[in-house]
Amino acid sequence: MLEINDIIKPENLVYGKTPVLTDSVMHYCPGCSHGVVHKILAQVIEEMGIQEQTIGVAPVGCAVFAYNYIDIDWHEAAHGRAPAVATGIKRLLPEKMVFTYQGDGDLAAIGTAETIHACNRGENIVIIFINNGIYGMTGGQMAPTTIEGMPASTCPFGRTPERDGYPLKMSEILATLPGTCYVTRQAVHTAAHVRKTKKALVKAFENQKMRKGTSIVEVVSTCSSGWKMTPVNANKWMVDNMFPFYKLGDLKNE
């Protein structure tokens, strides 16, 4: 009879850690979507063979330390300024692959101007947008994308549009700009969705190679700590509450 140890052999390996991901243990909470997106981003960089020419721009937010986990050159930007930083890099190094990795507070609140104008100029960059509807790093405050009724530490009884304004559909706005070539909204809560998001990232980087303009990959994500749920329940809550408002799929694909 076949033993497990007969299977665990190098020739049978079907899924392992990409060397583009460093060996550092991620500081993220258990079940955090950041880890999954970091992983598939690293896989895409490896599989496309672009590790030596890719420069990432990390945000302020939980992903501030993204540079500890993906083994490429990085800039750590001020809060919201990543698209401007990426513009500076890409304009001066047009042959390199440049991406930003930003959360909802970074991209859709404090960095709204930088995001919209980088996209409107059609900067040849990839923007990865993690939308979990909350400020994770500072302890669960309301984000521009917090959905109506959703509680956060600065709207403990739920977001009330009359007081807090409405949740912002940033990808829908960006899709209207002529500078963007690809705007898609994905998720990473199931294996199938992870694979789809990875394909979206490949497409985004291919667009950059072809100089087609700005590609935005939004990933609707969970923040189990901020939402005060288990990771499994956070995924369920996201499917039931976030997806009806933030509908998955391509918003633009040119």
């Binding site: 420069i55 001066l92 101007a113």
Partner: peptide
């Protein structure tokens, strides 16, 4: 490269990007 940015905030951060390279 010469680029008119959307603000001084963006300009200085473009320097952060380009200067870092």
């Amino acid at each position: 490269v010469v680029l008119q940015a959307e603000s001084e905030i963006a300009s200085i951060n473009m320097l952060y990007g380009g200067g870092g390279c």
